[in-house]
Design a protein around this nucleic acid. Structure first.
Length: 552
RNA sequence: GAGGGCGUAGCUCAGUCUGGUAGAGCAACGGCUUUUUAAGCCGUGGGCCGAGGGUUCAAAUCCCUCCGCCCUCACCA
């Protein structure tokens, strides 16, 4: 830990006195500390002197650059376009193979391949948009310019200025007239051909994953576009984006276990939100009418390919609306996003197509239990038997919990093409209105695709008296211990001031991204998924161990 | 929490069953090379084989413990 700031400050000052005499003492101690960080053994074992061969060699090259009057850590570089832009320009210019055009460009990127032929060198540059090849010749760059080329390593950043052309093999190439060195990389990149596949390294050092694996970079660019597009679509429908507290005195809106944090000045514990629902509904009371929030939720539960402790959810509430509006929004927004990002209403997940184009079938919760799970939903014994068969510990479960278990074990995995499951029992929800035609059922749907729950929507309960009754009933329940069984009085008070009838909807953004982008685990769509910290707890824990999160 | 798999050079991987001086490709270093596409050719360096303990004349390999990652299950509105 301590090594990190030291190392940084050392490096920051490097360019200013790269002459070997002064730089050496600054650098020398860096090497072992930085090796420690890498090896992760955290025990400060002596390290053999050659392990930082790459680091030292590259540092030496940085010094040489400095001696040549080139700043190894350069500054702003004005580009004419990104690499894909340059490529497009070349396409448009209709250049014959083996010729150079008059079209000049100025582009920059990271060097991801070097093929050197003595007095000429090809380098592949990479930026977010893609790759392009640059051709660097001694006779074009001059002796001094080419001396810099000889000091290039994989991973360095450079800018090149020149004309677009095609090599005799037809490859679009920047025939470079001027090379500008931008950044020296002191550590090597993962191998160019196989890329980086070790999941541990990929997730812990995602930046390497992004550089080495273009498809990973594409996926995260697409995730960003997906969220931007979702936001645009909701705004077009008249919703406004709001932000509600992530730290809440009473975590409400769902019953997952929360993370606990502490505010020092107020000396109170706060909970990382498990849902923004109760705050968003206060905004309906306040008359904001159509609101949405895209943000992180935190649930202190197990990890799995479908669960990260922090995940992104979109929730929206529409005053004067109901479940039908939520269905319309879900169907059109999700199918629209799929269409926009993958060019079709069909996604590929686990090697199988997932139909996302509308209309989605409306399925009945209880019928699915009967048909897919073969149980009699009215019989506790039937439910219990089925749940047991699935390996569920049924001892403490009531009828409704059993039903939920049976559903998620027998029905959910088979819901592959996008669909709505409607009419779950009212007992499974706390915040949803009962159906007029059947008060035992909730006016609710859950949307499923690829065997995962994707969305959850209600016609919102706006009866303040009934809401209080349900809260009180639940206050003795399972999660009461976590939160002291407190009712969210502030929310109830708000509702007592009158909340308009409304539809509410939550869409899991990570899961939507998984399905649309064909990623089978949530870790492939979350840039920095939670992993156990590398450096294990030190042998002598001087700090209060009590504050350590979850012993699990 | 339980079971299974994995951990060897900067990266991708052999080697572990059947114990006997630690291997390949890429990357790096030195040389040759001004149109390559995983460039090529010649040469060189690089490993506490995840950590600790045990068995053995001898351990990457067998045994035990621990750490990390992945998968399945459990937990989880």
């Amino acid at each position: 830990m301590l090594g990190v700031p030291c190392r940084l400050s050392g490096l920051v000052h490097m360019p200013r006195h790269l002459d070997a005499a002064r730089a050496q003492p600054t650098i020398a101690p860096l090497v072992p500390s930085n090796r420690r960080a890498d090896s992760g053994n955290g025990k400060g074992n002596p390290v053999s002197p050659h392990v930082d061969q790459f680091f030292e060699e590259r540092l030496a090259k940085a010094r040489k650059l400095s001696e040549l009057g080139v700043d190894p850590w350069g500054a702003k570089y004005e580009t004419s376009s990104d690499l894909a832009g340059a490529r497009a320009k070349a396409e448009a210019a209709n250049i014959a193979p083996g010729t150079e055009s008059e079209v000049s460009v100025r582009v920059a990127g990271r060097v991801v391949a070097v093929r050197a032929f003595g007095k000429a060198t090809f380098v592949a540059l990479r930026d977010r948009s893609g790759d392009i090849q640059a051709y660097l010749r001694s006779d074009r760059l001059g002796e001094a310019g080419y001396a810099v080329v000889k000091l290039l390593d994989l991973g360095d950043f450079v800018g090149v200025e020149g004309v677009l052309g095609r090599t005799k093999t037809g490859e679009i190439t920047v025939f470079t007239k001027a090379l500008t060195f931008l950044t020296k990389a002191l550590r090597p990149l993962p191998e160019k051909f196989h890329g980086l596949s070790d999941t541990d390294t990929r997730f812990r050092q995602r930046y390497l994953d992004l550089v080495a694996n273009p498809e990973v970079r594409e996926r995260f660019v697409k995730r960003s576009r997906l969220i931007a597009s979702l936001r645009r679509r909701l705004e077009e429908r008249g919703f406004i984006e709001v932000e509600t507290p992530m730290m809440q005195a009473i975590p409400g809106g769902a019953t997952a276990r929360p993370f606990i944090t502490h505010h020092n000045a107020l000396d109170i514990d706060l909970y990382m939100r498990i849902s923004p629902e109760l705050y968003l509904k206060r905004l309906l009371v306040g008359g904001l009418d159509k609101v949405f929030e895209i943000g992180r939720q935190f649930r202190n539960e197990g990890l799995s390919p479908k669960h990260n402790p922090e995940f992104t959810m979109m929730e929206l509430y529409q005053a004067y609306g109901n479940l039908d509006d939520m269905m319309d929004i879900t169907e059109s927004v999700v199918s629209g996003l799929a269409e926009e990002l993958s060019g079709s209403g069909e996604a590929q997940f686990a090697g199988k197509p997932v139909k996302l184009s509308r209309p989605w079938p409306r399925l009945d919760y209880l019928s699915l239990l009967r048909e897919k799970a073969g149980v009699d939903p009215s019989s506790v014994d039937s439910l219990r038997a089925a749940a047991r068969k699935a390996g569920v510990d049924t001892a403490k479960l009531d009828k409704w919990a059993l039903m939920d278990e049976v559903f998620s074990n027998y029905v959910e995995p088979g819901l592959w093409d996008a669909c709505f499951v409607c009419g779950a029992p009212i007992e499974l929800t706390l915040l949803c209105k009962a159906r007029r035609d059947d008060p035992s059922r909730a006016e609710r749907f859950e949307a499923y695709a690829a065997g995962m729950e994707l969305a959850n929507a209600y016609t919102e309960l706006n009866d303040a008296v009934e809401q209080r009754r349900r809260f009180q009933e639940q206050a003795g329940g399972a999660t009461a211990a976590e939160t002291g069984g407190k009712l969210d009085e502030d929310f109830l008070t708000a509702m007592e001031h009158g909340m308009p009838p409304a539809g509410g909807l939550g869409i899991g953004i990570d899961r939507l991204a998984m399905i649309v982008l064909g990623a089978e685990t949530i870790r492939e769509v979350v840039l920095f998924p939670l992993l156990r910290p590398r450096e294990a707890a030190p042998a002598a824990p001087a700090a209060p161990a009590a504050e350590a999160p979850a012993k699990e």
